[in-house]
């Protein structure tokens, strides 16, 4: 009996692992395929794609596709632009949206429920519906910069950053999280003499690690994957992000090895950012100070 039950347990465990491994492989195969293909010349890449060889580093392996990709397009500029635009937007978005959510949840003021409803209603609007009006607006906005007062924001970093700092989804995420924070912590800080800003900075933000990580990851992905908007508002190569840069590889003859090399390169920042925040996410799960 004992032997059979031990065998059963082993079998169950093996099945479970087999399923998990299969799921993991399904998710990881495209990435492996991308990286492996980026190392192969086009002819071999196409030949291999019908077999398991597509996922293995076999045959004529080299980094030549990477060199070619750098020659075909200003990859460094695209990656720099994307990282800059995404990084600045994520940081400003976390600050602005968390502050907005703080005001919605903790500070009592007239009309906040109505305003929050309107803000949340914006979630159902796809970006495409507001893209044209937004384009017409940013094309005529003033800017006070090094060159004095200028009109129109096209071909700049700010046109890719400012419209995306505040968004309903991020505010909503913070609102939901803040509502679950124990209200007595905020009241205790108020009685102790803290201003709203001090409560935001010293109490609420330090307890918001998990939601900051979540909001940052979501915002990062949206910003890094921007395609339509930067295509509309940037004509100059110097301001274009990675996704728009992909176009450079689909003009005239398509070199799939170079496409894969480019894709591998632009995936690196995403993976690095995700792995970094995943660690922060786990480290920042706060224990509650309220009896529970």
């Amino acid at each position: 009996m004992a032997m059979i039950s031990a065998d059963n347990r082993g079998l169950r465990l093996a099945t479970r692992y087999a399923v998990l491994v299969l799921i993991a492989l399904i998710f990881i195969f495209p990435l492996v395929f991308m990286v492996m293909s980026s190392l192969k010349p086009d002819q071999q890449l196409l030949q291999d794609s019908g077999s398991l060889r597509a996922f293995l580093p076999v045959g004529d392996i080299s980094l030549s596709n990477y060199f070619a990709a750098f020659q075909r397009a200003p990859v460094g500029t695209f990656v720099f632009n994307s990282v800059l635009v995404t990084g600045v937007t994520v940081v400003l978005s976390l600050l602005v949206c968390s502050a907005a959510a703080f005001a919605f949840v903790f500070v009592g003021w007239k009309g906040r429920d109505v305003l929050l409803s309107i803000l949340l209603a914006t979630l159902i609007l796809p970006f495409e519906t507001i893209a044209i009006p937004l384009l017409m607006m940013v094309a005529h906005l003033p800017w006070l910069g090094m060159d004095g007062l200028t009109w129109g924001w096209l071909n700049s970093y700010r046109v890719q950053i400012v419209p995306f700092i505040a968004d309903g989804l991020t505010v909503f995420l913070f609102v939901q999280y803040f509502k679950d924070l124990p209200g007595e912590l905020i009241e205790a800080a108020r009685v102790e003499g803290a201003s709203w800003f001090q409560i935001y900075r010293r109490i609420v933000m330090p307890l918001s690690g998990p939601i900051l990580a979540t909001a940052a990851i979501l915002k990062f992905l949206v910003m890094y994957n921007q395609y339509l908007w930067p295509l509309m508002v940037t004509q100059a190569e110097g301001y274009r992000p990675v996704m728009v840069g992909l176009q450079y590889f689909f003009q005239l003859n398509v070199a799939w090895g170079e496409v894969m090399a480019y894709l591998s390169l632009i995936t690196v920042p995403v993976l690095a950012f995700y792995l970094y925040l995943q660690k922060a996410f786990i480290a920042s799960i706060a224990s509650t100070g309220v009896k529970g």
Binding site: P182, E184, L185, A188, E192, A194, S195, P206, G289, K291
Partner: peptide, 18 residues
């Protein structure tokens, strides 16, 4: 509250966990 010169002890203690 901060200008009233009061201190308060809450039922749930409300001490800051971080």
């Amino acid at each position: 509250p901060k200008d009233r010169g009061v201190a308060m002890v809450f039922q749930s203690y409300a001490i800051f966990p971080h």
